[in-house]
Simulated scan of single mutants.
Amino acid sequence: MLELARQGEIDVILTKSIFRFARNTTVILEVVRELKNIGVEIWFEKENISTLSGDGELMLTVLSSFAREESKNVSDNVKWRYEP
C-alpha cells in the first residue's frame, strides 16, 4: 500500500488505529512525514486524527507513544503469565 501511495495511486490511507498502523513511534512519524510530503493523507479512525491537519503530527506523536507503551505492557503481562 505504501508503494502504491508513493506511485501516486493512493491519496488517502484509512486505518483503524495508530496501533494497527505501526508500533514504533519513529517508524510512524517517518512514514507519515514522507507521505504527507507527497500529499497522501493517513486517517486514524479510532483517534480521529488526520495527518494533513495542523495538529495531526503532534497528536500522533503523543498517542503513538502511548500505543507503544501499551503494546509493551501487554507483551510483558503475557510473558509473566507463562513464566514457571
Results as ranks from 00 to 15, higher is better:
M1E: 13
M1R: 11
L2A: 05
L2G: 09
E3A: 13
E3R: 14
R6Y: 10
G8P: 04
I10K: 04
I10D: 03
D11N: 15
V12K: 14
I13P: 04
I13M: 05
I13A: 05
T15N: 10
T15H: 08
K16M: 08
K16L: 08
I18A: 03
I18F: 03
I18H: 01
F19N: 13
R20Q: 10
F21T: 01
F21S: 03
F21D: 05
A22Q: 08
A22F: 05
R23K: 10
R23G: 15
N24C: 08
N24W: 05
T25W: 03
T25A: 09
T25Q: 10
T26S: 12
T26H: 10
V27D: 15
I28H: 07
I28M: 07
L29P: 06
E30P: 00
E30N: 15
E30C: 03
V31L: 14
V31A: 10
V31H: 03
V32R: 03
R33E: 14
E34D: 15
L35R: 02
L35M: 10
N37V: 01
N37D: 14
I38Y: 06
I38F: 05
G39W: 05
V40E: 06
V40N: 02
E41D: 15
E41L: 02
I42W: 00
I42P: 00
F44T: 05
F44E: 03
F44R: 01
E45G: 00
K46E: 14
K46Y: 08
E47W: 00
E47S: 05
N48P: 00
N48D: 14
I49L: 01
S50C: 09
T51C: 02
L52V: 10
S53I: 01
G54R: 12
D55L: 12
D55C: 03
G56D: 04
E57F: 14
E57I: 15
L58D: 08
M59A: 07
T61N: 11
V62D: 01
L63D: 05
L63P: 04
S64G: 04
S64E: 04
S65C: 06
S65P: 00
S65L: 07
S65D: 11
F66Q: 14
F66Y: 12
A67F: 02
A67D: 02
R68V: 01
E69C: 00
E69V: 10
E70R: 06
S71D: 12
K72N: 11
K72F: 07
N73L: 13
N73E: 14
V74R: 09
S75R: 08
S75F: 08
S75Y: 06
D76Q: 13
N77Q: 12
K79P: 00
K79Y: 10
W80T: 08
W80E: 11
R81F: 12
Y82R: 08
E83A: 09
E83M: 11
E83Q: 13
